[in-house]
């Protein structure tokens, strides 16, 4: 197994575990961490492509992804804080307004 192949498998693993974290954990901030992990997996792939090819495209794309991820994290934390004030909980289970009331 070459170095690059290993890194591709690693990024796939990272993505899947990020997804698993986002799906299974109940605390909203840990869910956010899972999402960050997924984004990082994508970044790793882009850095790999950048490594394979001539040019800067992969690296720059990864850079923009980081910028968007930062925004997402900031807004996400703000929303979590706000909903914590509103629901007195940062556990996603208890925030289920999408469900019909019966």
């Amino acid at each position: 197994m070459s170095k690059q192949e290993l890194l591709f498998f690693f990024s796939a693993f990272l993505f899947c575990s990020g997804l698993l974290i986002a799906v299974t954990k109940k605390n909203a901030i840990v869910v956010l961490m899972g999402i960050e992990l997924m984004l990082n997996a994508a970044n790793l792939n882009l850095a790999l492509f950048n490594f394979q090819k001539r040019g800067m495209d992969g690296q720059l794309l990864a850079l923009f992804i980081i910028i968007v991820a930062v925004c997402e994290a900031a807004v996400g934390i703000a929303i979590i804080l706000k909903s914590y004030h509103f629901y007195h909980s940062s556990v996603l289970d208890q925030i289920s307004d999408l469900k019909e009331k019966n």
Binding site: L19, A22, V23, T24, V31, L92, D93, I95, S96, D97, L98, K99, E100
Partner: peptide
Amino acid sequence: TRSLANGKIQSYLLWAM
């Protein structure tokens, strides 16, 4: 159908995935 739509956002995410 209703058991799928249980109002928990993570379940929605799971099914979407």
